[in-house]
Each structure stands twice: as structure tokens, then as C-alpha cells.
């Protein structure tokens, strides 16, 4: 079975409403815009005396993390709690899966506990799709699935919060040049960003990486490829850095962290080639001195911490849209 073998978009219900968030790929521009619009009023909830709204009161959200993550899990937990949901965190690599329970058995068991929403992080690409299809096949359409990162495939809420951040600072997607820099090959974040940027009408999306960290045929996603970072950064409005995972150093893909920093680390000197008002983004956690220089990370053009804050609002909006569908 391939992901594209389903006839209709499994993310939308028969009324065209978002019922699962599995991938940005396949969502139309107006749906992405709608999610970004819906997130706007949620940004303000964090500034109130009472940082909570009752939309998901009485609902149970299960964070199913089959792969380690502290940051993403925490932001989903905060988002669900600010919507008044009950949140149950399951770190499955230390639980049932290690005892041999399958993904779908886990889903069925939690469904029997009256779950309303699954937030799924899994090392295998397509795991959240499998879960959503299983729920549909077993008549459990009232349970919603959010992909919190699956293998190398997608990390849609990260892509959406990045789009929210870009729109917040740059307003109009259709005038922008955006560069994505780093380990595109292994990055689900990069895939979600590329799909979101092209769907929202960004006229020029660039990827900047060494040949060893680029997937074959990446140009087919509608991006311009640069192997020279200085060339790629020239005149861009937005620089989106990717995290370099340390384990990549162990293979033959990269010489050393120092070498990588020299060629692909974002320094003040290289950033000067972008537009003077260019913003710098990073999905975190950052490797200072590997993909980004501290002076840039802490500089005036960095919007890395606002990304985190906007991420809560975007996740609240997605959860509220799904639970209301």
C-alpha cells in the first residue's frame, strides 16, 4: 500500500473539513490559510490572566510518542491543556511497543478508553496515516489524528508554525524568496516547509545543502538547489535553518562539525548577503557552532523564540479545528 493509493484525501471529512492533520502535502492553499487565520486569536490567550479556553473541555488527547521528543511533546501538551483537554502522555518506546504490541493494537486500546485525539510521533514514515486509515476502517471517525513527525516524511505543525511566523513578519507570501539550509535529506521539517511554501505561493524556494544531504530529484518539489551557501543566500527574505543531527556525522555524509560549519553554518558574514531585513528561523533544538553561529541565533534578525510561541497557538488552532469537525 502506498500513501497515495487512497482515493480521497484522508485529512478531510465529507464536508471538506479538516479531520486529521497528517501532512501539508495535499492540503489546498485556502485550507492552509484558514489554519493560519484561525491561529491568530489563539496567540492572545497566552497573555491573559486565565491562559485557558474551554473548547476541548472533557476531551482526552493522547500524546503517542514512539520516538523521543521533549520539545514537540511539551508544546502539544501545553496547547491541549490551554484548550482545557485532559492530556495523557505515553512514551511508547518504554511501554507497550517494547512488549510487542502493534501500533494499531495500541490505537484500539486507547480508543476503548474513549480517546478523542491522537498526537503521533513515529520513526516510521506513514505511521499516522496507517492509524487514521485504521480508525476510518473500524468506524471510529470521531477520533482525530495529528502527525507530530513521522520518519523522514512530514512534520506538518512545524511547517504551519513556520508559515505563521513568516506571515507575521513578512505579510505576503507571493513576494518572497525563502532559503532552507541544511540536512534536507533526513528532514521531515524541510519537506513540510517546502510543500507549505510552494502551496502558499512563494515564488522562489531555495534549498542550500551539500550534495550528500540532498534527496535525489528534490528539484521536482519546485525548489532551486544551491550547493554554495553564499550564492544561495543572496537577496533572500527568509533563512530557514535545519538542525544537523549529530548521528549524521558518524556516517560518511559529512567530514566534521567544524568543516560543516565552515561551509554551511550561518554566520553574520553570510547572513549579510541576504536582504537587510531578512529573518532567521530554526526549528530547534539548535546546535550552536554547527549550523548556526551564536551571534546570529541571539541577533536581531532571529525569530527563533517567537516561532516557539506561535507554535503553541498554531497547535491550539489545529486541535480546535479537528475536534470541532
Amino acid at each position: 500500500m502506498t500513501l497515495s493509493s487512497t482515493n480521497r484525501n484522508p485529512q478531510l471529512n465529507k464536508h471538506g473539513e479538516l479531520t486529521h492533520l497528517l501532512s501539508i502535502e495535499g492540503l489546498p492553499c485556502d485550507m492552509l490559510t484558514r489554519i493560519l487565520d484561525t491561529a491568530i486569536p489563539f496567540t492572545e490567550v497566552a497573555e491573559r490572566e486565565v491562559k485557558k479556553v474551554p473548547l476541548l473541555r472533557g476531551k482526552s488527547v493522547f500524546n503517542l510518542f514512539f520516538e523521543n521528543s521533549t520539545r514537540t511533546r511539551t508544546t502539544f501538551e501545553i496547547a491541549a491543556k490551554r484548550l482545557s483537554a485532559d492530556v495523557i502522555n505515553l512514551n511508547i518506546n518504554t511501554s507497550s511497543a517494547s512488549k510487542g504490541e502493534t501500533l494499531l493494537d495500541t490505537a484500539d486500546n486507547l480508543a476503548a478508553m474513549q480517546a478523542d485525539m491522537f498526537v503521533v510521533r513515529h520513526a516510521a514514515s506513514g505511521a499516522p496515516y496507517l492509524m487514521a486509515q485504521h480508525l476510518a476502517a473500524t468506524g471510529q471517525n470521531h477520533i482525530h489524528v495529528i502527525n507530530a513527525g513521522d520518519g523522514r516524511h512530514a512534520h506538518p505543525t512545524q511547517g504551519l508554525l513556520d508559515m505563521y511566523t513568516i506571515r507575521h513578519y513578512k505579510r505576503d507570501f507571493t513576494q518572497l524568496t525563502v532559503a532552507i539550509v541544511g540536512d534536507v535529506l533526513h528532514s521531515r521539517v524541510a519537506r513540510s516547509q517546502i510543500h507549505a511554501l510552494t502551496t502558499l505561493g512563494v515564488p522562489e524556494v531555495r534549498v542550500i545543502a551539500p550534495k550528500t544531504l540532498l534527496p535525489g530529484g528534490v528539484e521536482r518539489l519546485g525548489v532551486r538547489v544551491f550547493n554554495d551557501m553564499k550564492e544561495g543566500l543572496r537577496g533572500v527574505d527568509v533563512v530557514m535553518m535545519l538542525r544537523l543531527q549529530n548521528e549524521r556525522m558518524q556516517g560518511a555524509l559529512l567530514p566534521s562539525a567544524q568543516e560543516y560549519f565552515k561551509s554551511y553554518g550561518l554566520t553574520m558574514d553570510k547572513l549579510a548577503l541576504a536582504k537587510p531585513d531578512a529573518i532567521v528561523m530554526h526549528p530547534g533544538p539548535m546546535n550552536r557552532g554547527v549550523e548556526i553561529e551564536s551571534a546570529v541565533a541571539d541577533g536581531t534578525q532571529a525569530v527563533i523564540l517567537p516561532q516557539v510561541t506561535f507554535g503553541i497557538a498554531v497547535r491550539m488552532a489545529v486541535m480546535a479545528m479537528l475536534a470541532g469537525a
Partner: peptide
């Protein structure tokens, strides 16, 4: 909300 979902409303 449970019947009609979230109203599209960008006003904060």
C-alpha cells in the same frame, strides 16, 4: 462548538 465547530474568526 460541539455542533458547529470553530467559527472562522480572525479577530482577536
Amino acid at each position: 462548538y460541539n455542533q458547529r465547530g470553530l467559527h472562522a474568526n480572525t479577530q482577536t
